[in-house]
Design a protein around this nucleic acid. Structure first.
Lengths: 147, 147
DNA sequence: GACGAGGTTTACGTTAACGTAAAGTGCTTG
DNA sequence: CAAGCACTTTACGTTAACGTAAACCTCGTC
């Protein structure tokens, strides 16, 4: 709806190279189908750190990516604390202290193991679902024939 | 420790065919590394329905399987409510009402879609982890060389 | 017969991850 | 300039999934 007038003199157009675009909290919220409250909460939990322009939060590409990663992590059942652990260490990497780096590698190995287990869980659950599905269809067919 | 005396006159031995074995709440808890409280909670939430012998809960093979499925679901980030939804409908299947069965098929399709998305999420997250891992190792190598 | 290892119920506490409501700021639009 | 958005902060509320504590039974055993 805000896109009604042609040649709007807005600062942002979709034509801008991604790296320079900025987003409002509402835009991000709609993009990812979460509420602004959720985004502010993630900031409070140290997962996002948007800059400000007066009072308003300004999100850049980097923030958008972080949010995306965070939500992906959530879908996989990770806690915000776990996600933060990786994200923050990733940021601390460049000036990396060796001990920190090794710790990061440990964490990553951990997450990877976790993912592998999830893959196996998915495989098994898929089989079970297929099985139940099969049975349900058969029962349905019988009901149809009786009728 | 309760396995100390040979030829214990217990009702249960590991030699029994699985289908006839029964388990105490403590046994199950240890098997799956959860607390008895968790198992009681799942019962209260309608996910388990052990029989009783006096006051004590007696778990059979079926209950064990259910617990296993429940915990697997949890690892994949499903809520107990979602898990119950499937488990209960599965039980209601035999005397299945056609509408219920169709509903079950819907739910199953839903879960399956969910799993597929998770697979994709895992794939992506794996790549990112590998990437971060790579970078971390490189930084470490540089640090080693400088020293 | 005291006691320790398991089990039981009841009930209140806790944590994570937001939801929701209230009250204020700042722009631009009829 | 009033009205309406989109944003802000503050703060209390809510839900899921258990944890924890107290107080009680019931065995086999020392």
């Amino acid at each position: 709806m805000s896109r009604s007038s042609p040649q709007a003199p807005d600062a942002q157009t979709d034509a801008l190279p991604r790296q320079q675009r900025t987003y409002s909290i509402g835009e991000l919220a709609r993009m990812f189908e979460v509420t602004p409250r959720t985004i502010r909460f993630y900031e409070q939990e140290g997962l996002l750190a948007p800059s400000r322009q007066g009072q308003k939060r300004i999100y850049r590409e980097k923030d958008r990516v972080r949010l995306k990663l965070t939500l992906r992590g959530k879908r996989l059942g990770f806690s915000l604390a776990e996600i933060r652990e990786v994200v923050m260490m990733y940021d601390a990497m460049p000036d990396g202290n060796a001990r920190q780096l090794k710790r990061l590698l440990e964490i990553l190995a951990d997450k990877r193991a976790n993912l592998e287990r999830q893959l196996e869980d998915i495989r098994l659950m898929r089989m079970e679902i297929d099985d139940v599905d099969q049975r349900a269809r058969e029962v349905l067919r019988q009901l149809d024939q009786e009728a």
